[in-house]
């Protein structure tokens, strides 16, 4: 087998995957205020500017972003509110659906299991405008609430798939044994099913949280003027022009999402091995 060319190609592939992220991290420390693509020296100014920590910042030579700190923090807060709420709701909805489809036999089951995947497969933009028309015709003002409702539709699909996969791998004999020993359905669920299901639940919830924090397209259509989330805030910043502060913010976001995702994937890998 000619393995060497394949190995070289694959390593280049992985470099291609990580190069763009590395580039942002690198630029975020570049001191050049005129052209951030030309390296001038190391600085933490953009991070300071981001948090408004630099008191001696001179607005004449280095433009601080007008909408900088308070708006960014408001967007971050909105994102967290939305992500925590959607994670809770979607985890409950997705898990109940997975339990129903895994533990019971009923007519139209295939319809449900297929239908629960559709929100995930639907192109973002179609769902986004559908929700926009729906909320405005229903007379609902666009707010964090509309974002939470909108995101829960497709996040439920994701949780459903993760939990379903975990449920399918569980040994039904344990539940049967519990029932034979006289435990009620509820006790069996609490003491037998739920502990075994925990890694799946956690994995599904983490996935929902990350995807919610990152959702741009659907949120873009159903967020009102006062309910910007972080991705929308960054999207707006980029549309207005490239600023070095974006690099610093982007670096922090990469760091945070990689940490959360790393934790989730590690937990899952550990759960699989057990």
């Amino acid at each position: 087998m000619r393995r060497l060319p394949l190995t070289v190609f694959s390593l280049i592939f992985f470099a291609f995957l990580y190069l763009p992220l590395a580039v942002i991290v690198g630029y975020s420390f570049n001191a050049n205020p005129v052209n951030m693509l030309v390296w001038e020296g190391f600085t933490l100014d953009w991070y300071r500017g981001l948090f408004g920590l630099d008191r001696s910042f001179d607005p004449q030579s280095r433009t601080v972003y007008v909408e900088s700190t308070p708006q960014m923090l408001a967007a971050l807060r909105n994102s967290l509110i939305v992500a925590v709420s959607t994670t809770c709701i979607a985890t409950v909805l997705g898990t109940t659906a997975a339990l129903a489809l895994n533990r019971y036999r009923f007519r139209g089951k295939a319809l449900w299991s297929g239908g629960l995947m559709v929100p995930m497969m639907m192109p973002d933009i179609v769902l986004g405008i559908g929700l926009l028309i729906f909320f405005t015709s229903a007379g609902m003002r666009l707010s964090l609430l509309t974002i939470i409702i909108g995101q829960c539709t497709f996040l439920t699909s994701y949780v459903f798939i993760v939990v379903q996969a975990r449920l399918a791998g569980l040994d039904p004999a344990l539940e049967e044994a519990s029932a034979d020993l006289g435990a009620s359905d509820w006790v069996t669920f609490r003491k037998v099913t739920l502990p075994q299901l925990a890694p799946g639940l956690l994995g599904g919830a983490l996935l929902a949280f990350i995807i919610s924090m990152d959702d741009l397209v659907i949120t873009y259509f159903i967020s009102g003027s006062g309910s910007q989330t972080l991705p929308i805030y960054i999207f707006g910043m980029i549309r207005r022009g490239v600023k070095p502060e974006i690099n610093a913010l982007a670096t922090l976001i990469i760091l945070a999402s990689v940490l959360i995702a790393g934790l989730g994937l590690w937990l899952r890998a550990r759960g699989d091995r057990k």
Binding site: P20, L21, I24, L216, I234, V242, A250, S257
Partner: peptide, 14 residues
Amino acid sequence: FASLIVRLYAWLLL
């Protein structure tokens, strides 16, 4: 998992 908009922004710079 690293934000979609951030990854696109990286290509804008590249």
